[in-house]
Simulated assay, not measured.
Amino acid sequence: MRHLLSALISSAKAGGNRQSNLDPEIRNMGQRLPDDQMQLYRRVDEVLFYIWDPIGISRRDWPKDEYQSYLPRVFTMLLEQAEPEKIQDYLIQIEAEYMGLGRKFGIKKRTRNLVSLLCSLRNSILLESGENVKWGSGVEYQK
């Protein structure tokens, strides 16, 4: 997981991203996101598609926008520094109930690890920009 986190953080710092339809969606929110938040938005999209990927489409030739309907809420929860358990519950609800996949063995642990990765990305990207962020424990850090 650390290697994956390092790769995503390096990609974020380099400004790399996969092609998607994110910019039009963000413009539809009524305002343009600051660069650091846009960077986080793109990274969350990548994590949802390549890592969370509950239906296993990232290894196939499938549209890269499959999970983008869940992206704004996960992104907002991260920005608002929601408790990691709330983000975890939301993702489990989507996977188990909305997608109809049920509560498979290991879903809580896998999703907890995913949320930990998302919070680490948030903290890394926003700390780079100089914003105050709270880690999952609620402790506030400044750059």
Rank of each mutant, 00 (worst) to 15 (best):
Q37H: 10
Q39R: 15
L40R: 10
L40Q: 04
L40N: 09
L40W: 14
Y41T: 13
R42A: 15
R43Q: 14
V44A: 09
D45V: 03
V47E: 04
V47H: 03
V47M: 07
V47K: 05
V47C: 04
L48P: 02
L48S: 03
F49I: 03
F49A: 03
F49E: 03
I51F: 04
W52Q: 01
W52V: 06
D53I: 02
P54I: 00
P54F: 00
I55C: 13
I55V: 15
G56E: 06
G56N: 12
G56A: 05
I57F: 11
I57A: 10
I57R: 14
I57W: 07
S58K: 02
R60N: 10
D61S: 13
D61A: 10
D61R: 11
W62T: 09
K64E: 12
E66Y: 02
Y67C: 08
Y67L: 10
Q68K: 04
S69Q: 12
S69M: 11
P72Y: 03
R73K: 13
R73I: 10
R73P: 02
V74D: 03
V74T: 08
T76L: 13
T76K: 13
M77I: 01
L78V: 04
L79M: 14
L79F: 03
E80Q: 15
E80N: 15
E80H: 15
E80Y: 13
Q81M: 12
